[in-house]
Design a protein around this nucleic acid. Structure first.
Lengths: 152, 152
DNA sequence: TATTGTTATACTCTATAACTATA
DNA sequence: TATAGTTATAGAGTATAACAATA
């Protein structure tokens, strides 16, 4: 038997309903699922796409720097970047014996552009109903909450 | 070598910085990590705790109903509930040949109370700096975004 | 036929430890 | 000693398919 998506809540989730963390999680899951679908035609995961975006905007960054910018551990960057190199989207240039600068190839730049279009469409599909001002305010609030370093 | 948490972004993440979905994801990851730590003393995962909360507030719900309320697939509920039954936190009562009503045992109710205290403390640690009014507004906005059913 | 619970399986993402080699 | 990249490994969460038992 196949199964449809878990339905809307029709039950009392008690204390959870007042929890910002709970609702952030539920929304984030929905957003990531839609984003995965949006990138599926390109066979890119959300992590793949975010790496292309960062390298595209910062040619010459090292793998570690890209990981830091995105909150991805060094150990997890290795296979992600490795796949993108193997697919011909990223080129490595040796800086010194241990560091390598990353940049997009022509194919990578094209994939990056296409992914950006898909992401914009996805973002608009999910959040297009929000007035631009309200969305910018939300972005600012959410960003401030995760970028604070006073709470680990 | 051990490794510390990926640092704050100091690089241009380009289009990502305007994306609500990106910031929701970053914040959600941070929140879930802190919540996991908060529940670790009880050896409960966030999913475990959410199940205890829902059953605690809705004694007699079936496993499927709990899953629907939380957005957890039936197939994934089985091992989650199974573990909580094995630990003596949940009791099953047969409704008919295929459904079973769930309720908390005394130990489960105690664990639920303790988890609620941990969750409140965690939520306050992360979001306590927000004025109550602002937090309620955020909760309302985020909840509305994921509960909409006009966009899959 | 549809529903409940289950098992098996797969993939993404996050995370830690440990290794190599370079600096 | 510290850093960059890598490998191996683990765990949580999400997801699909398929099965048995039951309604």
């Amino acid at each position: 038997m196949s199964e449809t998506k878990p339905a809307q809540p029709n039950a009392n989730v008690d204390l959870l309903d007042d929890q910002l963390g709970y609702h952030l999680r539920r929304l984030s899951v929905k957003v990531m699922a839609d984003l995965s679908d949006a990138l599926e035609p390109q066979k890119l995961t959300p992590a793949d796409a975010s790496i292309l975006f960062v390298i595209g905007a910062n040619a010459g960054m090292t793998q570690s720097e890209v990981g830091k910018a995105l909150g991805i551990f060094r150990a997890n960057m290795a296979p992600l970047v490795g796949r993108l190199v193997k697919r011909g989207f990223i080129e490595r240039r040796t800086i010194d014996g241990r560091s390598q600068a990353l940049k997009l190839t022509a194919a990578g730049a094209a994939a990056c552009r296409q992914a950006k279009a898909a992401v914009r469409e996805h973002e608009d599909r999910l959040f297009g109903s929000l007035p631009a001002v309200a969305k910018r305010k939300l972005v600012k609030e959410i960003r401030a909450l995760w970028q604070r370093d006073d709470v680990p």
